[in-house]
Simulated assay, not measured.
Amino acid sequence: MRNTDLSRTALAAFAPVVWGSTYVVTTELLPVGHPLFAGLLRALPAGLVALALTRTLPRGTWWAKAAALGVLNIGLFFPFLFVAAERLPGGVAATLGAAQPLVVALLAVGVLKENPSAWRLAWGVVGVLGVGLVVLGPAAGFDLVGVLAGLGGAATMALGVTLTKKWGRPAGVGPTAFAGWQLTAGGLFLVPVTFLVEGAPPAIGPTAVLGYLWLGGVGGLLAYVLWFRAITTLPVASVSMLGLLSPMVAALLGVVVLGQTLDLSQLTGFALALAAIVASQRPSPLTAATRAPAAG
């Protein structure tokens, strides 16, 4: 991997690492029972700030494209995510979400016309297995609506990531403006959904303000700028595998902040997931051998 790609990958990894803090921030700082409101505040203010900073709006067909990407990556993904989190144990929801790289690998064949990669599919399966070992506990249960929501979230974001790669970014439009379009579109989509489902906003205290600022500023604007920049400049299947970092970071924060512990099987899962993430950033040995110059 070239140094440029390595630095871009490291910046892209910042996003899922920050997203891994969402569970701790939500449970420890935010009002109970308003997850969609948290998603709304994570998206819409960040998007409007990005638009104000860049003063760049979509043109032509990009109005429709930006709206579609915002709904898929944020507007639909957040409700699916929170429904799964409410109806399933956290480990089950995280494991279903970890299936996203597998969906991206399949969509890359149909939408991006890439050749099927057994290498990436295999490491995608290893990644799901690793995350499952880390976050699934003996009390794991399966609620049909929750499972469908978890799979729906993985599918919608996978499609959004794939279309982001297919359409790219308009010439002359920076990553901040591009992220702002999608955050704003997803946030506007969430406004009626949030108030229909959750009703009036909750009372917001000082700790909640800090939580919302973290989710919107760092987990929203900064993280999505880096994430969408990575999708347009790096292989989409490799970027999607970085999403496995989120449940792993969430588990680590559970140990550090909430006093939880990790057993041997969870540590094994960490090793498998990390191996899958690292391996997915490199071409398959067969591809590398094919590209290598002939000896002699």
Score class of each variant (00 low, 15 high):
P192S: 13
L129P: 05
V191K: 04
L151H: 07
G219L: 08
V173N: 08
L133R: 01
F178C: 03
G124D: 06
T268P: 04
V256C: 08
H34T: 15
L133E: 03
V109H: 02
P175H: 10
L69W: 04
V173S: 08
W19M: 09
L11C: 12
N73L: 14
L69Y: 00
G127D: 08
G70N: 12
F228C: 02
K166S: 13
P285S: 07
G205L: 07
G211D: 06
V83W: 13
F78K: 06
A50G: 06
V225N: 05
G168Q: 04
V193W: 02
A223H: 10
G60S: 09
A50C: 11
D5M: 13
A237L: 05
L274H: 11
V147W: 11
L133H: 00
A13C: 13
S238Q: 11
T164F: 01
T233V: 09
G152W: 08
T194W: 06
A294Y: 01
L163A: 12
L234E: 10
A93E: 11
L213R: 03
A203F: 01
G186H: 04
G110L: 15
E114Q: 07
F142I: 13
L133V: 06
S265C: 12
L196H: 10
G124K: 00
K113D: 13
T184D: 07
M248C: 15
K165G: 10
F37N: 12
S117N: 03
L148H: 08
V173F: 04
Q100I: 07
G296P: 01
P58Q: 05
D143M: 08
L36Q: 02
F228D: 02
P283D: 10
S240Y: 10
A279S: 13
G60T: 08
P283W: 04
A250P: 09
G47Y: 02
A46L: 02
A230L: 03
V239T: 06
W119G: 00
G146I: 08
